[in-house]
């Protein structure tokens, strides 16, 4: 591949990756009136932050009068802030529980031989292959019987179960790459298994744990199907549920729902960029052997 061709391919790739996001941001800075013009304005002629202002303050700005948002405003897009709160509480709880559980289990599978090891390992990993839709009704009934419908706890429970197999597998591979000699030395010095894990392995494996935490967070923040099934009100509705409700509703202001969308993709994108080196190193560590 010569250099000019490579640069051309690179520019096309960048346009494909970022173009949709730039178009979204541009749309969120317009009002519906400007949005519904042919041809569309790729660069807003009258850029405005009114959509964002409306979502954050919930006070309709002066530009939203008459033929504007008045009729087209949407309660759901305005629920974005409480939905973000729900999503954060759920995702952070899942992340913490997931990292603790999966670290404990992964270290055991990486280092110890015991009766029932292979069967329990296969059991946990295979569970990941069960599609969510296949168990949707029973989980709904289960959560109902536990009295947890429309609570964040229900989402936390389900998301922990769905993210655990992958993070456990990932961490098991990761722990497996450390030479066992250091841990053995600690054990001879009288450290228990748990002590060795928390004092020696966890500090060494910090990048892997960060990557696992990122996977658990993003998996929970993105989940849609169970969010749809298990929530009813703003006591537990998460960002994807609220956004989809606005996006497929033709009576909703498009501009308003795009501003809500921009606000809600900022956290995971920041998360990915901050944890970038851990995520790529984590993949490199696990895949490259």
């Amino acid at each position: 591949m010569n250099r000019v061709a490579a640069s051309g391919a690179g520019l096309i790739l960048l346009a494909f990756l970022l173009g949709p996001i730039l178009w979204l941001v541009s749309s969120s800075l317009q009002l519906d009136r400007e949005l519904f013009t042919v041809p569309p304005h790729f660069i807003p002629k009258q850029p405005t932050f009114d959509n964002y202002r409306y979502i954050i303050t919930r006070v309709p700005p002066a530009t939203y009068t008459g033929d504007q948002i008045g009729r087209r405003a949407s309660g759901e897009a305005l629920s974005l802030i409480p939905a973000l709160r729900n999503s954060f509480i759920v995702s952070i709880a899942v992340m913490l529980i997931n990292v603790i559980f999966s670290t404990l289990a992964a270290y055991t599978y990486a280092r110890l031989r015991f009766r029932g090891r292979d069967i329990t390992y296969a059991f946990i990993l295979t569970s990941r292959l069960i599609p969510a839709i296949s168990v949707a009704i029973p989980i709904f009934v289960l959560i109902d019987r536990l009295g947890l419908l429309d609570t964040r706890s229900a989402l936390i429970l389900v998301y922990v179960a769905f993210t655990l197999p992958f993070t456990m597998w990932f961490l098991m591979k990761y722990f497996g790459f450390f030479p066992p000699e250091i841990e053995e030395a600690a054990m001879i010095d009288g450290s228990s298994r748990l002590g060795t894990l928390t004092r020696i392995v966890v500090p060494m494996a910090a990048p892997g744990l960060a990557a696992a935490a990122a996977f658990a967070f993003m998996g929970s923040y993105s989940e849609f199907l169970f969010g749809l099934f298990l929530t009813r009100t703003m006591a537990s509705k998460t960002v994807p549920v609220v956004l989809v409700a606005t996006a497929i509703n033709h009576d909703v202001s498009f501009a308003l729902s795009f501003a809500a969308l921009v606000l809600s993709i900022i956290p995971p994108v920041l998360f990915a960029l901050v944890f970038r080196s851990y995520i790529t190193r984590g993949f490199a560590g696990v895949l490259a052997r």
Binding site: I100, F101, S102, L104, A105, Y107, T108, Y109, T120, F123, I124, S127, I130, S134, V135, I137, P138, I139, V141, L142, L157, V158, V160, A161, F162, L164, P165, M168, R193, L194
Partner: peptide, 20 residues
């Protein structure tokens, strides 16, 4: 050490599968 993971997974994926 594997009990918490095992329990959560059994409750949320295997029990529902039998129920389904």
């Amino acid at each position: 050490s594997i009990l918490p993971t095992l329990l959560v997974v059994a409750l949320i994926s295997v029990y529902p599968l039998l129920f389904a």
